[in-house]
Computed example of a mutant assay.
Amino acid sequence: MKKSKWVRTLFRIAHCCVIALVIAENVTAGERDIPRTESATITLIPNPNLSGMVDLYLDGRIDVHVMARLNNFAYLEGRKGVVLHLNSFGGSTRAGLALGRRIRQLGFSTQVSVKAEGSAQDRAGICESACVLLFAGGRFRLIQPDSLVGVHQFAATDQVDSHEAMADAQIFSAATVNYFRDMGVSTQLFSLMAITPAREMHPLSVTDQVDLGLVNAGKEDAVWSIEIDYGGALVVKGVQSTISSSVEFQMSCTAEQAIALGVIVDSGTAGLNSADLLTDVRTLTGVPGQSVRTTVQTTEIEFLPGADQLHKIVGAKSFVVRLHYVNNRQSDYAIDVPAKAGALMAGFVRICHGMTAKNDPR
């Protein structure tokens, strides 16, 4: 019994060595840093471009000790622009699930990359097996095209009893499926894991990562709904967040049965001069009643579009608010408009104007 366990352990060690050798042979020296085999470290490296981004670099094996190292940076919880860069062959599935949920709780973003010495640009990294669970935990999951991302089945446990091992696998299977669903990642990713033997690795291309929802390119899906404002009036509301900002769009009905559009962005930069509303990257010229209010943390813009402009608005697939500053600088804040949101706004316009279906501006 002990001999059998020793043989399995020796085989796993040899297998890891083979994987490391294969990767080393296929990677040109200096192009990619091989992850360390010891328990992963997490290092904060100041961003030299003063963009407000915070870069954390995780390198090494995923195990129970990594949680304490991650919690050392819990003071960054909720701060925009915190990116956890991953470089790991994987490790414990149990630790990976716990770390992934903690990363989402902290609001950190994730990317597979390593710090390049003497350069402001990060290099491609490796994220395989349990590391992918951490990658999925990022609120915003960023693409590094040349990085290696791969999945496979859970590694065999140390239990000698096959029934115990089977029960363990079933528990982790259910936990992983639920985890991907909670993280907004397609459960098809688990299917790819399940059909790939533990001794192999299924590589995920950039297209695979996008299609599976494993990466979201630093942007969450827009959320649209009908709500009631503080005055008791109905408002169509859309919210979309990116790694660096968020925008809120509101459509309301005035006492004169006119449509008012309010936009709130989380930018309170001084020197704001004016703002434009764009639909599908086309400026809606001459939108009357524009007003701009800027506080320390937010900027609120109000537009009163005419009938022709409403037709473009309810038929748009995206909105962009372009802010213009006194120093000729400008910044854009965008929100996606899915078909259901467009139909919601069209119906709201009919109600506000007292229109019949034949007069639908859409």
Rank of each mutant, 00 (worst) to 15 (best):
W6E: 13
T9N: 12
A20C: 13
A24M: 13
E25W: 14
V27C: 14
P35D: 05
R36N: 07
S39K: 05
I45A: 01
P46I: 02
G60V: 02
G60Q: 01
H65I: 03
H65M: 08
A68V: 09
L70S: 07
Y75L: 09
E77S: 11
V83G: 00
H85S: 11
L86T: 06
G90D: 06
A98I: 05
R101C: 00
K115Q: 09
E128I: 02
G138F: 07
Q144V: 03
F154R: 03
A155C: 11
T157I: 08
A167W: 10
I171C: 12
R181D: 14
D182V: 08
S191G: 12
A194S: 11
A194V: 09
I195N: 07
A198H: 15
R199H: 15
L204G: 08
D208N: 10
D208C: 05
Q209N: 06
V210A: 10
V210K: 15
L214D: 02
N216I: 06
A222Y: 08
I228C: 09
G238V: 03
G238Y: 10
S244P: 05
E248K: 12
E248H: 10
F249E: 15
A255Q: 13
E256P: 01
I259L: 11
G262L: 10
D266F: 02
L272D: 10
L277A: 05
D280R: 00
L284Q: 10
T285K: 14
V292F: 07
V292S: 03
T295C: 07
V296D: 13
Q297V: 08
P305R: 02
P305I: 03
G306V: 08
Q309D: 05
V314N: 04
V320R: 14
V321S: 05
H324T: 06
N328Q: 13
R329N: 13
D332R: 04
Y333K: 00
V337K: 10
P338F: 09
P338I: 06
A339Y: 11
A341K: 01
A346L: 08
V349I: 14
V349S: 01
G354D: 12
A357E: 13
K358M: 12
